[in-house]
């Protein structure tokens, strides 16, 4: 049974996407992944939109003063095991917005990040690559010992 679950986990990554305040460039590339050219549903990946159903939190853009708490809440509402992907340079480090007064920098200032995907804007191929990496990490994670 455990083996079945572990195997299924890799085949069914559901993502929830939150745009922290980048420029939308990466967001649309994430959406582009779902569309016919890239079609990540081939790998069972779904943009599920609700943290409670998701496995992977995909964040774009630098975190700012107002959405830091939103990001934290979303992270808390994703059941274990889960991984976080920082998509794009500014989600990873703040990027071009490093000297803006309202940004705190990369999202790792707020939540632990498992996979960083650089690029401005990130290419869909890079995102798919990142998901593969994220799935490897997901497999190493365990459920917390509840439920």
């Amino acid at each position: 049974m455990m083996g079945l679950i572990t195997r299924s986990r890799v085949k069914s990554p559901w993502i929830v996407h939150y745009c922290c305040g980048g420029c939308n460039g990466c967001d649309i590339e994430i959406l582009a992944c779902l569309t016919p050219l890239y079609d990540v549903e081939r790998f069972g990946m779904l943009n599920i939109g609700n943290p409670k159903h998701a496995d992977i939190l995909v964040v774009t853009g630098p975190v700012n003063n107002r959405n830091a708490r939103v990001l934290k809440t979303l992270y808390d509402q994703i059941p274990n095991p889960k991984v976080v992907m920082a998509v794009g340079t500014c989600a990873s480090s703040g990027g071009v917005f490093h000297n803006c007064y309202n940004t705190l920098g990369g999202i790792d200032k707020v939540i632990p990040v498992d996979v960083y995907i650089p690029g401005c804007a990130v290419r869909p191929e890079a995102i798919i690559d990142g998901v593969v990496l994220a799935l490897d990490k997901l497999n190493l994670k365990k459920r917390t010992k509840v439920g």
Binding site: N64, R66, V96, N99, C100, Y101
Partner: peptide, 24 residues
């Protein structure tokens, strides 16, 4: 939720570099 402060940042970059900021 997405406010960064680009107008202020634009005053801190040399003017040709702002093209990259404005594109973002």
């Amino acid at each position: 939720y997405m406010h960064r402060g680009i107008e202020r940042a634009a005053e801190k970059n040399p003017f040709p570099n702002n093209v990259f900021l404005c594109e973002r």
